[in-house]
Write a protein that binds this DNA or RNA. Structure first.
Lengths: 173, 173
DNA sequence: AAACAATCAGTACGTCTGTCCTGGTAGTTT
DNA sequence: AAACTACCAGGACAGACGTACTGATTGTTT
């Protein structure tokens, strides 16, 4: 069972490769080089590339869920401002990671086996939205808007101003 | 100049390949096979794969802009319902195409030369939002929400119910 | 300590890839 | 009609790819 560490390291390396080169850049060799191991080690733990991508997606979804869940509890008296700060965090200090997550997320549109993991992605967002507004329709709208704001910011490579985001979100209380 | 037709056909074939196999499935050979021409014909018009992808993205953005612009004028007395109908159209009758557009859109996050074309993508959406509400902040929020709703629907492979979407959007008037 | 299974380094094979090169063909220009 | 140019078919090349195979190594079990 000593291989579990190696396995986790390979998943970490996979996400690192995606951050740098996108999902298209993922290959057994690229991941092995990133992790500093041999190709055989990657094919041993993940026989096919598909296995590797699926494991990377589900792992990343779990990580994000855990991280966001932690931040939910910190949402206090000024949730719009704090949400805006969270968005900026995801777009600036974790831009590569966030972009990788969106690429993996979009993969789920083509791979039914990823759909469950992708759905899990929205759960912490929904949780955040629920603390923001009690109206369930507004909460759904907020989740969609957060998704769209993140996506647009990634593409324009320039995050919106924090204050503007906060003002925007305030419309959905 | 007779090659212009062939060039357009190659771009159409490229989008068709993306619909079927994603951006990752695009290769000179796959596009040539889809268009029923030789590989040399694709490399003649688009020397590198990058050229092909960039041209496909900008072309798709122009197509969508033209199409959505047409639909803007049709938005009448019940814009929420009609927006919901438009969303369903993009997700059901044009699902493959919409998915391809999102894949290309996300490419822009990594390729600065695509950023302009990607930005053009949002323009018709913004236009639609402006006819929906006069408040510019709500309009921005609506564009983001539309983006998020489309993305989420693509991933869950099941569009939201039209009536629910209409009810959601009504909150942003 | 001996047998075992998990783990991985090294290597190999067939396939697909991007891109280039050599011609040939068919419209255009002079 | 002759020269020219745009276009594209066919094939070639080196490289990267997924994946399978062969042994070594190393921790675990008996």
């Amino acid at each position: 069972m000593r291989g579990a560490l190696r396995r986790d390291e390979l998943l970490r390396a996979t996400v690192a490769v995606i951050e740098r080169a996108g999902v298209a850049g993922v290959s057994h060799r690229a991941v092995a080089a990133e992790a500093g191991v041999s190709v055989a080690s990657t094919t041993y733990h993940f026989a096919t590339l598909d296995d590797l991508l699926v494991a990377a997606l589900t792992g990343a979804a779990e990580d994000l869920t855990a991280e966001l869940h932690e931040r939910v509890t910190e949402l206090g008296a000024r949730p719009a401002d704090e949400l805006a700060r969270l968005i900026e965090h995801l777009l600036v200090y974790r831009r590569g990671r966030t972009l990788a997550e969106y690429e993996l997320y979009l993969q789920a549109a083509r791979r039914p086996e990823l759909r469950e993991a992708a759905a899990a992605w929205l759960q912490p967002l929904t949780e955040i939205a629920r603390t923001f507004t009690t109206n369930p329709q507004k909460a759904s709208l907020l989740v969609a808007a957060l998704d769209g704001l993140l996506l647009q910011s990634l593409v324009r490579a320039r995050p919106f101003a924090q204050a503007d985001v906060a003002a925007l979100l305030a419309h959905l209380r």
